[in-house]
Amino acid sequence: MYVVELSLKLSPMPVAVQRKELADAQALYGQVRQALEGTGPRLLELTCEKEEDKRISLLTSEVVAVQLYEKSAVGSGGKRPGFSFEG
């Protein structure tokens, strides 16, 4: 399972969407990235693979960052997803 996670302005909680296949997660990551590179506010709609009626729409001007990681990496006690400094 792969997670595409979006950080939003003025929100402590990210918005995350899961994809079963790496190719699908990479395609969604690319779609979000393209929207961020565009000019002016755009609406980005994210859907759930498991429940097709579950959707969320976001203004791309409110998205600060997007990251892609494998979900199993979170629970394994290994390295946290995202970027951090090792002390």
Rank of each mutant, 00 (worst) to 15 (best):
M1S: 06
Y2I: 05
V3M: 11
V3E: 08
E5N: 09
E5C: 06
E5H: 04
E5D: 08
L8I: 14
L8R: 07
L10P: 01
S11G: 06
P12W: 07
P14A: 12
P14Y: 02
V15I: 15
V17T: 12
R19I: 01
R19Q: 02
R19K: 00
K20C: 04
K20F: 04
E21G: 00
L22M: 11
L22D: 07
Q26R: 06
Q26K: 10
L28N: 03
L28Y: 01
Y29P: 01
Q31L: 09
Q31K: 08
V32W: 00
R33I: 00
Q34H: 02
Q34P: 00
Q34I: 00
Q34W: 01
A35G: 06
A35M: 06
L36I: 04
L36H: 08
E37S: 13
E37P: 02
T39E: 15
T39I: 13
T39R: 15
G40Q: 08
G40V: 05
G40S: 10
P41Q: 15
R42S: 06
L44W: 04
T47P: 02
C48T: 08
C48F: 00
E49I: 01
E49G: 04
E49D: 15
K50N: 14
K50G: 10
D53F: 00
K54N: 14
I56T: 15
L59M: 15
S61L: 13
V64W: 00
V64I: 04
Q67Y: 01
Y69M: 08
Y69D: 06
E70N: 11
K71G: 11
K71Y: 12
K71I: 08
G77K: 07
G77C: 03
G77L: 09
G78S: 12
G78D: 13
G78M: 11
R80S: 08
F83L: 08
S84R: 07
S84K: 04
